[in-house]
Design a protein around this nucleic acid. Structure first.
Length: 282
DNA sequence: CATATGTCCTGAGAGC
DNA sequence: TGCTCTCAGGACATAT
C-alpha cells in the first residue's frame, strides 16, 4: 500500500535517471486484465523516446517522471504497484518499462493491477491536480493550513486524514500511526479537536512520515512493497499500532491494541493511550 | 456543498 | 488435499 513514505522512497530510488535519455517505452503483455496505460502505444513512444529526463518528482502518492519538453510520465502504484530499477519480483505482473540511454531500465510492476502509467502534458497535469482535487503535500503543508483544512469537518479524524483533497500523501497505515503518536482517538470528530490536538497531530504527522521515509517505508507481511532496488522497507519494525490488533500497546504496555473499521477501512489504536482520560496517564 | 458508499483487482489465509 | 469465501485499501464514480 504505497503511501507518501513508500512513494517518496520510489522517487529517490530512481532519481539517478535524471539527465538520461529515453530509448524505449513499452507496455508489457499482460496475462490478465491490462492496467491503464495512456495514451496509445504509438503516441506514448512518440512523445517520450528521445526525450531527456528533467526531474523525478512526487505528487501525493504518485511518481512523476518529468521530461524535457513538458510531458510527464505519472506512475500511480495504488495498492501493489512498484517502481523499480532492479529486476521485478516476477515477470508475470510486469506492466511497463522505460529503457534509458545508459542501458538501465525503469520497471513498473503491479500484482493487482489497480495502478496506472499515464503520460500527461503540463496542461493536463494542471487541469487534473491543480483544481483542488489534490491538497498540499503532507510534508509541505504549514501547521495552520493543516488545521484550517480539516477542523470544520464533521468526519472522524482518521477518516478525514485519508482525504487527499485536504492533505496529500496520508494513507490508511500512517493515519493510524500518527494518531497514536499524537495520542488522539481516531473516532473523534475533527470539530471536537482543540488547537493543542491539531498542533500535536501536525508534529506527529511530520515525525511519523519523515521517520518512515528514513526507513524506506513499510513492507507488510505480504512482502509486496519493495524499494527501487527490490529491497524491503524497514518501518514496519517501528509500527506502534498498525496490524498489531490484540498485541500489547508499546506505549502503556498494559492494553491490547484494538482494531475497528471506519469508512470500510481498518483502524488500529490503543484505547488507553488514545482514550478520553489520556491526561491522567502522565 | 460535504459526506458516504460501491467498484476495481489478485493472492493469502480461513474454514470446511 | 482442494474447494469456496473473505479481505486487504489506493483513487474515483456515483449516490445521498
Amino acid at each position: 500500500m504505497p503511501e507518501l513514505p513508500e512513494v517518496e522512497t520510489m522517487r529517490r530510488g530512481i532519481l539517478s535517471i535524471v539527465g538520461k535519455r529515453v530509448v524505449a517505452a513499452e507496455r508489457m503483455p499482460s496475462p490478465r486484465k491490462p492496467i491503464l496505460i495512456s495514451p496509445t502505444p504509438a503516441v506514448f513512444r512518440k512523445r517520450t523516446v528521445g526525450r531527456t529526463v528533467a526531474a523525478v518528482d512526487r505528487l501525493g502518492k504518485r511518481v512523476v517522471i518529468r521530461l524535457e519538453g513538458g510531458d510527464s510520465i505519472i506512475l500511480e502504484p495504488r495498492m501493489t504497484g512498484l517502481v523499480l530499477l532492479a529486476d521485478p519480483p516476477t515477470t508475470e505482473h510486469l506492466r511497463f518499462r522505460l529503457t534509458l540511454s545508459d542501458g538501465r531500465t525503469v520497471y513498473y510492476w503491479d500484482r493487482r493491477g489497480l495502478g496506472s502509467v499515464r503520460l500527461f502534458s503540463e496542461k493536463e497535469i494542471a487541469a487534473r491536480y491543480d483544481d483542488g482535487t489534490l491538497g498540499p503535500d503532507a510534508l509541505a503543508i504549514k501547521r495552520d493550513d493543516f488545521r484550517g483544512r480539516l477542523h470544520r469537518s464533521r468526519r472522524a479524524i482518521k477518516v478525514a486524514l485519508l482525504d487527499q483533497r485536504a492533505v496529500a500523501g496520508i494513507g490508511n497505515l500512517y493515519a493510524s500511526e500518527m494518531l497514536f503518536v499524537a495520542r488522539i482517538d481516531p473516532r473523534k470528530r475533527c470539530t471536537a479537536l482543540k488547537k493543542d490536538d491539531w498542533d500535536r497531530l501536525y508534529k506527529a504527522m511530520r515525525d511519523v512520515l519523515l521517520t518512515a521515509v528514513k526507513y524506506e517505508g513499510s513492507t507488510l507481511s505480504d512482502g509486496t512493497y519493495r524499494n527501487a532496488l527490490n529491497k524491503a522497507g524497514g518501518y514496519q519494525n517501528h509500527h506502534q499500532v498498525y496490524d498489531r490488533a490484540e498485541s500489547l500497546c508499546r506505549g502503556c504496555e498494559t492494553t491490547p491494541i484494538r482494531r475497528i473499521v471506519q469508512a470500510q477501512r481498518a483502524t488500529f489504536y490503543c484505547p488507553r493511550c488514545q482514550g478520553p482520560k489520556r491526561t491522567a496517564a502522565r
